[in-house]
C-alpha cells in the first residue's frame, strides 16, 4: 500500500519537474554572473582557482554558514551521544597486529601532510579547506580503527575546532574594521599562482581545514567510543 502511494506521488512529481528542466538546456553557456566571475576573477581576487574565489570571497558568507552547520552537527551528535559520567573502559581492547600498527604510524603523518598541502594550496589547485579537512579526518579514522591504544582527546579536538571558528569570524571582523565590509579581502593580492597571494583566501582555508579536520575526527571518535 505504502509503496503504491509512494509511486503515485513520485509520478506526479516527475511530470511536474519535466517542465522547468526542459527550459534549462544542458551543456551550453548561458550564465551572466558566472561570466563576471571568470573574466574578472584574476584582477578582483588574485586567485587562480575561480571556484575557490567564489567559495571564499564572493560567497564567503555561505561558507561561514556552512562551517557553522558542520559545527552544529558535531556538537549535536556529541550532545545526543553524551554519556553522563566518563566510563573508564574496563574492557581491554584487543591490540592490533604489528603490521597494522607500523603501517598506521607510518601513514598517519603522511596523510596529515597531504591534507595540509590540499588546504594550503586551495587558491591554486583543485581542493581547499573542506577537502583537506576531510583527508585529515581520514587520518584520524585510521588511528581510531587500527591503533586503538592511542587515545585521541575529543576535548583537544573541540578546542582546535573553536579556535578555528573564531579565526574565521575574526578575519571577517578585521575586514569590517579596516575596510567597512565584513569578510573583506584586506590582504594584498600578490602575484598569480604564488603561494602567498589571493588576499585572505589562504588564511580562511587554513582555518577551515583545521576546523573541518577536527570536527569530522570528533564525529568519528564520538560514534566510535560512545556506541560500543
Amino acid at each position: 500500500m505504502r509503496k503504491i502511494i509512494a509511486l503515485i506521488f513520485l509520478a506526479i512529481l516527475l511530470w511536474g519537474i519535466t517542465k522547468p528542466v526542459s527550459r534549462i538546456p544542458f551543456g551550453t553557456n548561458k550564465i551572466k554572473v558566472a561570466e563576471h566571475y571568470i573574466t574578472k576573477d584574476i584582477t578582483e581576487t588574485g586567485a587562480a582557482n575561480v571556484v575557490t574565489s567564489v567559495v571564499v570571497l564572493y560567497r564567503g558568507f555561505d561558507t561561514l554558514g556552512e562551517v557553522t552547520i558542520l559545527f552544529i552537527a558535531a556538537i549535536g551528535l556529541a550532545s545526543i551521544l553524551y554519556l553522563p559520567r566518563k566510563k573508564v573502559s574496563d574492557e581491554v581492547l584487543e591490540e592490533s597486529s604489528l603490521i597494522l600498527r607500523t603501517g598506521c604510524r607510518f601513514l598517519f603523518p603522511l596523510i596529515l601532510l597531504f591534507g595540509a598541502y590540499i588546504f594550503v594550496h586551495g587558491h591554486l589547485t583543485p581542493g581547499g579547506g573542506f577537502q583537506g579537512g576531510a583527508i585529515i579526518a581520514s587520518g584520524f579514522a585510521l588511528i581510531f580503527l587500527s591503533c586503538r591504544e592511542r587515545v585521541v582527546s575529543t576535548v583537544k579536538l573541540g578546542v582546535v575546532e573553536s579556535l578555528a571558528g573564531m579565526t574565521f569570524v575574526a578575519v571577517g571582523l578585521i575586514g569590517l574594521a579596516t575596510g567597512g565590509y565584513f569578510l573583506l579581502s584586506f590582504l594584498p593580492k600578490g602575484t598569480l599562482n604564488m603561494l602567498f597571494s589571493a588576499g585572505i583566501i589562504p588564511v580562511i582555508y587554513v582555518a577551515i581545514g583545521f576546523k573541518v579536520g577536527s570536527e569530522l575526527a570528533g564525529i568519528i571518535g564520538n560514534l566510535m567510543e560512545r556506541t560500543q
Binding site: I31, V33, A34, Y37, I38, V50, V51, V54, V55, R59, D62, T63, G65, E66, I69, L70, I72, A73, A74, G76, L77, I80, L81, G128, F130, L216, I219, N222, L223
Partner: peptide, 23 residues
C-alpha cells in the same frame, strides 16, 4: 564555477544531516 561552489556547500550540509541522523 558557481554551481561547484554551491555543491561544496550542499555536500557539507548533507554530511552534517547524515551524521546527526546516524547519532
Amino acid at each position: 564555477p558557481i554551481p561547484q561552489a554551491l555543491v561544496l556547500t550542499a555536500i557539507v550540509i548533507g554530511v552534517a544531516v547524515l551524521a546527526l541522523a546516524l547519532s
